[in-house]
Design a protein around this nucleic acid. Sequence first.
DNA 1: ATGTGGGCAAACAGCCGACAA
DNA 2: TTGTCGGCTGTTTGCCCACAT
Lengths: 429, 429
Amino acid sequence: LTPDGLPQPTQEGEHKNLNSELWHACAGPLVCLPAIGSRVVYFPQGHSEQVSASTNKEIDAHIPNYPNLPPQLICQLHNVTMHADAETDEVYAQMTLQPLGAEEQKYPYLPAELGTPSKQPTNYFCKTLTASDTSTHGGFSVPRRAAEKVFPPLDYSLQPPVQELIAKDLHDNEWKFRHIFREHCCAGQPKRHLLTTGWSVFVSAKRLVAGDSVLFIWNENNQLLIGIRRANRPQTVMPSSVLSSDSMHIGLLAAAAHAAATNSRFTIFYNPRASPSEFVIPLDKYVKAVYHTRVSIGMRFRMLFETEESSVRRYMGTVTGISDLDPVRWPNSYWRSVKVGWDESTSGERQPRVSLWEIEPLTTFPMYPSSFPLRLKRPWPSDLPSLHGGRDDLMWLRDGDRGIQSLNFQGFCNGMAAWMHPRFNPSML
Amino acid sequence: LTPDGLPQPTQEGEHKNLNSELWHACAGPLVCLPAIGSRVVYFPQGHSEQVSASTNKEIDAHIPNYPNLPPQLICQLHNVTMHADAETDEVYAQMTLQPLGAEEQKYPYLPAELGTPSKQPTNYFCKTLTASDTSTHGGFSVPRRAAEKVFPPLDYSLQPPVQELIAKDLHDNEWKFRHIFREHCCAGQPKRHLLTTGWSVFVSAKRLVAGDSVLFIWNENNQLLIGIRRANRPQTVMPSSVLSSDSMHIGLLAAAAHAAATNSRFTIFYNPRASPSEFVIPLDKYVKAVYHTRVSIGMRFRMLFETEESSVRRYMGTVTGISDLDPVRWPNSYWRSVKVGWDESTSGERQPRVSLWEIEPLTTFPMYPSSFPLRLKRPWPSDLPSLHGGRDDLMWLRDGDRGIQSLNFQGFCNGMAAWMHPRFNPSML
DNA sequence: ATGTGGGCAAACAGCCGACAA
DNA sequence: TTGTCGGCTGTTTGCCCACAT
């Protein structure tokens, strides 16, 4: 409500106050939007990957370099708004970023920049729809534990126990479902929770097919929320019909370059389910990963992935190399600079390259495993940020981030599997 | 077919050889794609308008100027391909443009650049769907003249006369319809053409609603083609969810500026039904309009518009002013430089600004109407292109287009309603 | 515990006619 | 000429069950 008590003027598809819990549930358990006002690191390269993934078009070779655009921009995050496509319910976030000057990058962390309040709802479930769920022949079979956890309790004295559920989606539309706990006639026959009347209306309105997911949330205001997640249909080419993917790539680069040159604000869209990785990450997360973690070839690590049921699990892997993903366009970028192999290799299921801040090394500095020989000619370049210079929440950045890029590590260490700073390139030896 | 007789590898949504007649019919009678290999004029400003119209977002004030990007680029049109969105059947064209150097702009016209082979099919009809047409209760009521003109003749000896029609859409999908000429029982009762079985499948598959249009073509190969045109639903916000409209605007500007600076190719999408005006027009059309037509305040003109039934009609109007649409961003641009008033003013139905090449002046040079006083201090600036220098198909461009922009017409003529070069600004007097 | 299929009744789709604009 | 509606079937939807995994 506005100060005069009038409702906010809202435009279809532009509604700002969508339910944050539901948005996060639809976005997935790994997605975490940085706090408004905090400092973040923006990677044009990652933004470009989102465009490539959305348009199903690789970036073209003739797209110009932006020599004045570094591979990452340290920015102030002025605003974040959550959105959902009016047609498809696809969730995305709009962020207003402002590149920071070297001085502002050195401010100490604010307390708000360090806490990461995970907004994942507790009382929710997510189910991938079966052929029966989406067919017109029947309703929705609710997993028993799910129904008992997130739906209001049924009055089991009724024969059969039924109730009407009203669930709100991201656009605040209400959907009514008849929830029945069907007790079968024959003795000892199984009982089950079903959604019957109202379910097929929802399925056809949202155009759900088998393989898509539906999720229900019971929030602390005792409201039932409903969201959807579409399966990653590989052939969802959307060439936009208004702007070529080349122009989109150029557009994001030029927008970022212009903002960086003038320290002015720019706007980006982050689509968590379309984008292969987050490309706006909290500054402290970046600093911890890049300056406070040693990564070496052969190192073991864990990384979080989302499961089918919208929970998380860790996969194990080994670092196999550290190098530039795109040495021509983005030299000295930390974006996906770590080449990895996965223990459970489901043939290209997981990316062969990750970024430092995505992984949890199983051994961290300053623990050097004895199996790797290490010889340092000098302990550490003096112009690198201090590694022990204080507690994280009071840490200062000693160097502008771009300055780091030009450091020369030649002669810093040697040996095939030497411990090294991530930007150290073995081919330089 | 490829040289070895194998079918072309086609990708869904990327099919190149879609039916040109059908594409043009869906695009509308006014849309004319320039010929491959010809020279064209590209207006970034118009391209920007297409983005604004598609995203429902006006261009933001803070978007940087591109001082090195002129308001129009003379380009070689290397390729044009017709496309249709796989989801919505929305038609659009992809064009590959290459900005030309000053030398190449002066080449004489090729014969192919002058002919404008209008590809509008002859045997076709277009009908806006009524509530009855789109309801599940009934079929499609075919206008009598339309059925007799474009459908194959029925065998009227049958009781009732029926046939099966098979129509192909832009994606080469076939749709079957039962075409019946229903003779009613009671004597003297009206007869009519209807499409019954198969019609509702088409309506629901294409998600047509009342107000959308359907069109049928009977081509010279005796094939029936079917296309659709959706009504301009005002609230079709499509904020793309991957790229901000700001970045899109910047992207097209940067792509054009980069191409212009390096004389390299770039790609644009032209969506005839989303774009308010064509922004890639044949060079000869541009030259004729800009250099061979005098436009003055008070001048009467006609302009073509599309009717409901997909034919064209002319509306009359009067020139009320000539000035820059966007003096800050695009000074000295011919894009929508003519302010007009319309005789039949349906309150903002038609644009208040048009470009020179869109209108047909009712009086053309060198006929000076006696009602307007004219005093020329000198007959014509000597550095303007020759007006009588030869037949149009052999005409040479005497000046690079950008050079023209900087001419100073001060003192060229005077008087309130003086005949003037379109770029002449009355406020300069 | 939950996906799928048969049976069945109610709802809807869809063809015909009539009528009016 | 053609948009809409009432009447009348044939098909589909969707709730219940049972059975299999």
